Computed example of a mutant assay.
Amino acid sequence: MTNTNVRIEFDSNAVRNAVKKSSPKPLSRAGAYIRKSARNAVSRSKNSSSPGSPPYTRRGLLKRSILFGVERQRMTVVIGPAESFIGISMTAHEFGGIYRRRKYPKRPLMGPTLQKVAPQLPKLWEDSVKP
C-alpha cells in the first residue's frame, strides 16, 4: 500500500477578482432579459387593467419607461420604470395606494416579472467566470 499526500491551494482573491472582472456583462444580460419580460407583460388599452394584473399603457409610455442600469461598483443591476419618464405613478400601481387623490388597487409588474424569469437567470452566468 502506498501513501499519497495531496495538497490543495485555494486563492480566494483570484476567484473574487475573476468574478468582479466578468460580472458586468452577465448583470447587463440579466437586466435586459428582465426588462424585456416586463415590457412584454404590459399591454396597450384605453381601459384600466384588472386589479392583480400588470397595468395597461395607453400610449406606450410605460413600456418605454422600463429601463435598466448596471452599477459596477456595487455589482448590482437596477430595473424598472424610470421616474423621469412617468413620475411616481408606478409606485401606486405596483404596491397599491393613492396617487393624485385617486386610490389605485395593486397592479404589480416588476415583482411578478422577476419571479417568472428567476429560474432562467443562472443560465446567464454560465461560463462567465474564467480563470
Rank of each mutant, 00 (worst) to 15 (best):
G80C: 06
I34L: 13
I79E: 03
S48F: 10
A30E: 06
I86W: 08
E83M: 11
W125H: 03
K106L: 07
R35L: 02
G60C: 08
R29M: 07
T76E: 13
V70C: 06
M90C: 09
E126D: 13
A118G: 05
P112I: 05
L61T: 11
G97T: 10
R39T: 01
K25F: 14
L109K: 08
I86L: 12
S28I: 00
P122N: 12
L62K: 10
V78F: 02
R101A: 14
R107P: 02
P112D: 09
K106T: 12
P112E: 08
T57Y: 07
I98L: 03
P55G: 06
A30K: 01
V70F: 01
G96P: 05
N40Y: 01
A30V: 12
R101S: 15
V129I: 15
S53Y: 14
T76F: 00
R29A: 08
R101E: 12
G80L: 03
A118C: 00
I66M: 07
P26S: 11
V117I: 14
R102A: 08
G96M: 05
S50F: 05
L114R: 06
P122R: 13
R44V: 10
V77D: 00
R59T: 15
A32S: 13
A32K: 09
I86T: 10
G52T: 07
I79P: 08
G69N: 12
S49F: 03
G96K: 06
E126H: 10
P108L: 10
S43F: 09
Q120P: 00
S37Q: 14
P54V: 10
S49M: 04
I98T: 11
F95A: 06
R39K: 10
P112Y: 09
G111R: 08
A41S: 15
E83C: 03
P54W: 11
Q73H: 14
S128W: 00
I88K: 15
A32H: 02
V77C: 03
L114V: 11
A82H: 05
R101L: 11
S43Y: 11
A92Q: 08
S48V: 02
R102Q: 13
L109I: 05
I66C: 04
H93M: 13
N47H: 12
A32V: 01
L27Y: 01
L124E: 05
Q73P: 04
G111S: 10
G52L: 09
L109E: 09
K36E: 05
A82I: 00
P55M: 09
Q73I: 05
S28H: 02
